[in-house]
Design a protein around this nucleic acid. Structure first.
Length: 882
RNA sequence: GGGCGCGUAGCUCAGCGGGAGAGCACUCGCUUCACACGCGAGGGGUCGCUGGUUCAAUCCCAGCCGUGCCCACCA
């Protein structure tokens, strides 16, 4: 016998280890079944499970479990990401607590430390995914820095370099002065700051007392000014184009150039040019051959190219000094308040500095073309569809991807330099040496590039590198391309787009057929969860408190087509209650010996209620299957919830109670078997969302049954729906509800039994009364049912349901005036309704233009209202007589 | 500046060309022998505003207002 409540913590771990140790998560490279593959978005190896992971992996697990039960050869490929900067920062912080920097250790020792840290804490996230119930094939777990995956990275780098799609270039990049590395455009986030706009006067060379006014938000860059731009058609400045002005602090001569970039409407119409520290100025500088003076070092401190007084200053200190000095010189014209956005490093949080350096780039434009076509031609579908526009927009305007990072943790760039600077890009040092020897005609010394690759470079290969590429493995053959990628929209560009490019380039076909993009998990007020706001909800603590199933169900039911999920603990609690409900339904079945019957044939049942619940199962399964196919996760969860609670528990179990509690009979046996079967179907349909409780109940409902997760997924033909049974049971539900409504409204004691009188019953109604009399009497608390009535007794309350009038002789227990006003209200409501229908039906436009069946439908509704009104009128008449 | 969402019951949200639904919350009543993490019965909404299309608009279209996010080189 089951306990009174479900205790998730007692069974979850046991079930999970059973599944895992019995190999139920394993995919088979040699199996014939149609494969179904999902690669996990690899979490940071040193990370821990947050709510975003919980959502992401719940959705994947739902898809994986459904398809596994459908008999597909299912691979959920797990693994973790080395997360270059993030991981390096974590380890550096740890070292920092001991007063050690990575430079104290040196590169090799530091990297050893990171590996130690990985060995120590790298299992956290995968353990936590197990607690969530994720049915990954852990035997195939990969790490982006595994040997095999590193080989893939090298191979890809070399191949793209040979094709000219990876190249080294000296360009302005986003430099993070705190982390001392270049970062890609995507790692830059714009932050609104309350800045200022300073207007300065620059003296014109050779024209005493004449100035040109320039405005800037970054006075410190004045140290690197090499020009001033004005619009070529701006009449104010026409005479100055080609002349020089003087940078008052550096004394630099600044050529005044005419360039379309200068906007006459903005500021003074003249803009100072700092080509080495601004992306726009860089372009203008190139066009006009302006000098590029780099004035910052890697810390964004002023370097030796600036006047001595400024050297070594932090950029913001330098800014203040420059403003002060310009003011002293009388050249500060004005200062405007100027809120604007400033680019910040997403990891470091400090403003990034455009900085001129040598970096490695991927020519993304070429790789993007076929990746755009794959979506245009529908080979890869993005769900929800509106993200396709975002994808196109970014891909069509894609910029070169800066892939080199000046950090230590990551894939070292496979490029070697000879002393004269010649570059050899090869997969191994040996190959590079050989190439160099061939090039120089003698053996030479080479040194490897000290940079590592952007983390997303290796992640971009994930769908095929995890399957063994560049080896031609059976896994690669079988499981690539994958079926669906489930991830957050926030990494559409970082990751999805790049997997598309790399997958197509190296595998010849796109890495997945469908990309499902879900939203962010926010708190119940729609706020982003963040440590500083203190509104972070830890999934593990919710699992501890309510069980993994409750959390999973909540995330699933809140996931509506990629919209953000607003999570409240209250909601989780509510779905924990659902699992208790389910638990007790099973308990009830057990108590009433509803056992699974070998060879039970749903189509062969004879009892109406059984036919009904079976039909509802069939409908529910169909609805769930539609929801799965459409990635409507909320519908999957809601559909089963509604069926389990409101059909199975509220009505079916209540309806069969009298039979179950009666004498043994064929009817009772059929109800027991049907109940057991229907409960099984709930467990099957719910298993992908709530794997633990369903498995627990599955095994407790039958001795020695095989694991639920390897059972056949429910799919039934529509022909199994018995619409007569549905109509009949829906009828009895309506009648019972109507009677209960009257009892409640009339304030009739719950225990009091009163007779039900029925008149004008049609044949169908009579049949139903006969067939469903027992549950009707019990659930509506009736003393008896009398169908021989021809006249309503005085003061009987009447309810018309379908083709019969149901009356409760309650004159002595009710307040007549209340009942009168109730009926009067009902009549005026019906009058309004009838009026509306009349208006519509008398409208020729409607009757001639609307489809015939719509008109008929409206007519029928009107008639029903009229009949109802007559009945109520009669009842009112009788009450008035009292 | 460009793009994408969202405004429906007190809250969180489904829905969608033929007079609106769920969960939670609320009110009332229940020690009904599976479940009080429960059972039953209720109250509550000019479906953001204004126009248009249509016989018919919460639903389609346009504009506006509010709100959120993404992208962008604006001194």
């Amino acid at each position: 016998m089951l306990d009174k409540t479900f205790r998730p913590d007692e069974v979850e771990r046991a079930h999970y280890s059973d599944w895992e140790s019995n190999g139920l998560f394993k995919a088979r490279a040699d199996a014939n079944a149609d494969p179904y593959t999902i690669v996990i978005p690899p979490p940071n190896v040193t990370g821990s499970l947050h709510m975003g992971h919980a959502l992401n992996n719940t959705l994947q697990d739902v898809l994986i479990r459904v398809h596994r039960m459908q008999g597909r050869n299912t691979l959920w490929q797990p693994g973790t990401d080395h997360a270059g900067i993030a991981t390096q920062m974590v380890v550096e912080r740890q070292l920092g607590e001991q007063g050690v920097t990575r430079h104290d250790l040196g590169r090799d020792a530091f990297i050893d430390k990171v590996w130690d840290w990985k060995a120590e804490s790298g299992g956290t996230i995968t353990r936590q995914l197990r607690r969530l119930g994720a049915s990954c094939d852990w035997s195939r777990e990969r790490f982006t820095m595994d040997d095999g995956l590193s080989d893939a990275v090298k191979k890809v780098f070399v191949a793209l370099h040979k094709k000219g799609l990876i190249y080294r270039d000296k360009r302005l990049v986003n430099w993070d002065p705190k982390l001392h590395t270049a970062i890609s455009d995507l790692e830059v986030e714009q932050r609104e700051v309350a800045g200022k706009l300073w207007h300065f006067r620059y003296p014109i060379e050779g024209r005493e007392g004449e100035f040109i006014t320039v405005a800037t938000t970054r006075p410190e860059t004045m140290l690197g000014d090499t020009g001033v731009a004005v619009h070529p058609e701006d009449e104010r400045y026409l005479s100055l184009i080609g002349k020089y002005c003087i940078q008052p602090i550096t004394g630099q001569r600044l050529l005044i150039v005419g360039d379309d970039y200068a906007d006459p409407e903005q500021g003074s119409g003249a803009v100072k040019m700092t080509p080495a520290h601004d992306f726009n100025d860089f372009d203008v500088g190139k066009r006009h051959d302006l000098e590029m003076i780099n004035i910052f070092d890697a810390d964004a401190h002023v370097n030796e190219n600036a006047p001595e007084a400024y050297q070594g200053l932090d950029r913001f200190v330098a800014r203040d000094r420059i403003v002060a000095q310009m003011d002293e010189l009388g050249l500060l014209e004005k200062i405007d308040e100027h809120p604007h956005t400033v680019p910040h490093g997403d990891r470091s949080g400090v403003p990034v500095e455009p900085w001129l350096t040598d970096q490695w780039f991927v020519n993304a434009e070429v790789l993007a073309k076929p990746a755009i076509e794959a979506v245009e031609q529908g080979r890869t579908k993005i769900v929800p569809k509106q993200w396709e526009a975002t994808y196109y927009d970014w891909m069509r305007n894609i910029q070169p991807w800066c892939i080199s990072r000046q950090i230590w943790w990551g894939h070292r760039i496979p490029a070697w330099y000879a002393e004269d600077g010649t570059i050899f890009v090869e997969e191994t040092e040996e190959a590079a040496l050989k190439a160099a020897a061939a090039h120089f005609g003698r053996d030479v010394k080479l040194s490897q590039d000290s940079d590592v690759l952007d983390t997303w470079f290796s992640s971009a290969l994930w769908p095929f590198s995890t399957l063994g590429w560049p080896e031609q493995t059976p896994e690669l053959e079988r499981f690539y391309p994958t079926d669906v990628l489930v991830t957050g929209f926030d990494i559409l560009f970082f990751w999805v787009a790049r997997m598309m490019m790399m997958g197509i380039e190296f595998m010849g076909t796109e890495p997945f057929h469908t990309v499902y993009l879900h939203g962010l998990v926010r708190d119940e007020n729609g706020q982003k969860m963040s440590k500083s706001k203190g509104n972070v909800i830890d999934p593990l603590s919710l699992i501890d408190k309510y069980g993994a199933d409750a959390l999973r169900f909540t995330l699933c039911t809140m996931e509506v087509q990629g919209r953000d999920v607003k999570l409240s603990e209250k909601r989780v609690e509510g779905y924990r209650n659902f699992s208790t409900k389910l638990w007790n339904a099973a308990r009830f079945c057990q108590m009433n010996e509803c056992r699974n019957v070998e060879g039970f044939r749903p189509a062969a049942v004879t009892q109406t209620v059984n036919g009904w619940i079976i039909s509802e199962v069939v409908r529910t399964a169909a609805q769930v299957n539609r929801a799965v196919a459409a990635y409507r996760f909320n519908d999957i969860a809601d559909t089963v919830y509604h069926f389990a609670w409101h059909n199975f528990c509220d009505w079916y179990l209540e309806l069969i109670k009298p039979v179950l509690q009666g004498e043994d009979s064929p009817e009772k046996a059929e109800c027991q078997a049907t109940a057991a079967w229907a409960l099984d179907q709930i467990l099957l349909l719910l298993h992908p969302v709530m794997p633990f409780i369903t498995s627990e109940l599955w095994s407790s409902m039958g001795e020695g049954r095989e694991a639920l997760m390897s059972q056949q997924w429910p799919e039934y033909p529509d022909s199994m729906v018995d619409s007569t049974a549905i109509d009949d049971v829906e009828w009895v539900i309506r009648v019972i509800s109507a009677i209960r409504g009257v009892r409640s409204e009339m304030n009739i004691k719950p225990g009091a039994k009163i007779p039900l009188l029925v008149k004008d019953a049609s044949e169908t109604s009579l049949r139903r009364l006969e067939q469903l009399a027992e549950p009707l009497q019990r659930l509506a608390r009736l003393e008896s049912v009398d169908t021989s009535v021809t006249e309503a007794p005085q003061g009987a309350v009447q309810q018309v349901v379908d083709e019969a009038t149901y009356m409760l002789p309650v004159a002595e227990v009710i307040d007549i005036s209340e009942e009168k006003s109730r009926l009067e209200k009902e009549i005026s409501r019906l009058d309004g309704e009838i009026d509306r229908f009349d208006k519509k039906l008398n409208n020729e436009n409607f009757t001639s233009r609307a489809p015939a069946e719509v008109v008929a439908e409206q007519q029928a509704k009107r008639e029903a209202a009229v009949v109802q009104r007559e009945k109520v009128e009669e009842a009112l008449g009788r009450i008035t007589e009292l």
